[in-house]
């Protein structure tokens, strides 16, 4: 991990009508870091990713990625980032290979490198044997893996992963976590949203805890556990978010 800042967010805000989904958040992500964005459902994790990746416009504040402004230079940013949305959204009718080639074409991967890169990714993600099968025939775990492969086709510097293991069985989730871990060793900066705290504890260098659109704290998982005097990140999360009494009450009621 280096000390260069690749994502800088200042007072970023998103409002949907009366609802304030993201409330003036600020944070920085360093190059090569795995940064976890944690929070319960509706905390504003996906809204933040959508703004940072150009899928929606901020209501206020600003952010820059690799020095490019998200409001005015979003196309420059898109060339250097890969995004894995919460729902795997490649083309059902296209084969695994055709999906990757199409993505390579969109990102301007040179013609002579497209096939080589697609084959390489299919092998890394253990999908090469199914390269000619349509996306719709894949299991949920395979769809997830191919969506990640598609987001890496142009060798991005930063990878945004929105709830990457949601809905996956234990084996598929474990295999995906290993893949994410390998990406980190390749020097790719990873911005990860999850509500699986064990996953964040395993993968992330630092985490931000987000509740109702606001960041409550940013630190390493170890520091959060130490500061709150809790054994696991999940317990630390409960303490920080104020959900601990609620959980205790539920447990007492059993």
């Amino acid at each position: 991990m280096k000390n260069d800042i690749v994502i800088k967010v200042e007072n970023l805000t998103k409002r949907y009508g009366e609802i304030l989904a993201v409330d003036h958040i600020s944070f920085e992500v360093k190059e090569g870091e795995v940064f976890g964005f944690l929070g319960p459902n509706g905390a504003g994790k996906t809204s933040t990713i959508r703004m940072l990746t150009g899928l929606s416009k901020p209501t206020g504040g600003n952010a820059s990625i690799l020095g490019f402004d998200i409001n005015s230079q979003i196309l420059q940013i898109k060339k250097h980032i890969g995004v894995v949305p919460e729902i795997s959204n490649l083309y059902d009718e296209l084969s695994a290979m055709d999906n990757l080639i199409f993505m390579a074409q969109l990102y301007g991967v040179p013609r002579e490198e497209r096939l080589k890169r697609a084959e390489e990714l299919l092998k890394i993600f253990k999908l090469y044997e199914r390269k000619d099968s349509p996306f719709r025939t894949f299991s949920r775990g395979m769809k997830r893996a191919l969506t990640i492969a598609a987001s890496l086709i142009h060798n991005p510097k930063i990878l945004f992963l929105d709830e990457p293991t949601v809905g996956l069985d234990v084996v598929a989730a474990r295999s995906l976590r290993n893949l994410i871990s390998n990406l980190r060793h390749q020097g790719i900066t990873i911005f990860l949203t999850t509500h699986y705290l064990e996953e964040a504890d395993l993968l992330c260098d630092r985490v931000a805890i987000l509740v109702k659109g606001k960041i409550l704290t940013i630190d390493t998982p170890l520091n959060l556990k130490t500061k709150t005097d809790r054994k696991t990140l999940e317990e630390a999360f409960m303490k920080i978010t104020g959900l601990e009494p609620e959980i205790l009450a539920i447990e007492k009621g059993r």
Binding site: T53, L55, L75, Q76, K78, V83, N89, Y91, Y107
Partner: peptide, 14 residues
């Protein structure tokens, strides 16, 4: 509806 249009929007295209 399928989310594939959003996929296109993630690429460097307006």
């Amino acid at each position: 509806r399928l989310g594939t249009l959003e996929r296109l929007l993630l690429a460097p295209i307006s």
